[in-house]
Simulated assay, not measured.
Amino acid sequence: MLRRLYEWILALAGKPSAPWALAAVAFAESSFFPVPPDAMLVPMTVSRPERAWHYAAIATLASVAGGLLGYAIGALLFDSLGQWLFKLYGLDGAASTFRESYAQYGHWVILLKGLTPIPYKLVTITSGFAHYSLFWFMLLSVVTRGARFFLLAALLKRYGVSIRGVLDRHLNVVAAISVAVVVLGFVLFKLVL
């Protein structure tokens, strides 16, 4: 099943709808969806390295736009939808602790957590819940998400042929490591708070 999904994403990279699919995943991941856009960005970029910067820009802009939805969930719907999402991810008590960290560390929370494997949706929802400055939230989101996706695009553009060979031969291992990194992100989020 994983192999078919990988091959579907590679085939999708050549279609006009590929950027729209990447944008949808990046948007959703910043507010509620558990799968990071890297799952599409990596195969799409190794398939078409000449489009690396284009794909990174799409992922960045869509991720920041999705972050606005996450911010709105935290600011307007935290007692219902926001708490449910945190509970779904096993982080029931983390939001209030994370909110307190905004008072002490402000900008650093968004900058550092936006680059780590900690799911960005937790940052966006909690930013709204903490009523963090929307201006600074947007600016720092562009910086941190842009840095993440453009750095990944640069690596994929430079080493894409080698990476594609590894993905083709060891897809299950790479997928297992990717899942482990996402799980580690949740664990780190709980431990840091």
Rank of each mutant, 00 (worst) to 15 (best):
residue 3 R to E: 12
residue 127 S to C: 02
residue 45 T to C: 04
residue 31 S to G: 15
residue 147 A to Y: 02
residue 135 F to M: 10
residue 95 A to T: 07
residue 179 V to P: 06
residue 134 L to H: 02
residue 177 I to H: 05
residue 139 L to K: 03
residue 112 L to M: 13
residue 8 W to N: 09
residue 79 D to E: 14
residue 181 V to P: 09
residue 39 A to C: 14
residue 110 I to N: 00
residue 119 P to D: 06
residue 15 K to E: 14
residue 193 L to M: 08
residue 45 T to N: 03
residue 41 L to T: 02
residue 105 Y to T: 12
residue 118 I to N: 05
residue 75 A to C: 02
residue 144 T to W: 06
residue 159 Y to I: 06
residue 119 P to R: 12
residue 113 K to Q: 15
residue 125 I to H: 04
residue 168 D to A: 13
residue 75 A to I: 01
residue 16 P to N: 09
residue 21 A to Q: 10
residue 14 G to F: 03
residue 159 Y to Q: 12
residue 151 L to I: 14
residue 143 V to E: 01
residue 20 W to F: 11
residue 48 R to S: 09
residue 34 P to T: 10
residue 126 T to P: 01
residue 136 W to Y: 09
residue 43 P to M: 13
residue 33 F to S: 10
residue 191 L to N: 05
residue 113 K to L: 13
residue 158 R to M: 14
residue 186 F to L: 15
residue 75 A to T: 00
residue 58 I to H: 00
residue 39 A to M: 15
residue 104 Q to L: 15
residue 66 G to R: 00
residue 145 R to T: 00
residue 192 V to G: 06
residue 169 R to K: 13
residue 69 L to Q: 04
residue 34 P to F: 09
residue 59 A to T: 01
residue 22 L to I: 08
residue 126 T to H: 01
residue 10 L to Q: 13
residue 150 F to A: 03
residue 174 V to T: 08
residue 13 A to R: 05
residue 64 V to D: 01
residue 146 G to E: 04
residue 18 A to K: 03
residue 153 A to Q: 02
residue 172 N to M: 08
residue 173 V to C: 08
residue 126 T to L: 01
residue 47 S to G: 15
residue 166 V to S: 04
residue 143 V to I: 15
residue 106 G to P: 08
residue 160 G to C: 06
residue 14 G to R: 13
residue 101 S to T: 09
residue 33 F to R: 09
residue 107 H to P: 09
residue 180 A to F: 12
residue 5 L to M: 09
residue 152 L to T: 14
residue 71 Y to K: 00
residue 142 V to D: 01
residue 142 V to L: 15
residue 155 L to D: 03
residue 15 K to M: 11
residue 184 L to P: 08
residue 91 L to M: 15
residue 25 V to N: 03
residue 160 G to V: 11
residue 160 G to Y: 07
residue 48 R to K: 14
residue 51 R to I: 01
residue 85 L to Q: 04
residue 173 V to R: 13
residue 48 R to W: 08
residue 86 F to W: 05
residue 49 P to N: 05
residue 122 L to A: 08
residue 171 L to T: 03
residue 61 L to G: 10
residue 154 A to M: 11
residue 147 A to N: 05
residue 177 I to P: 04
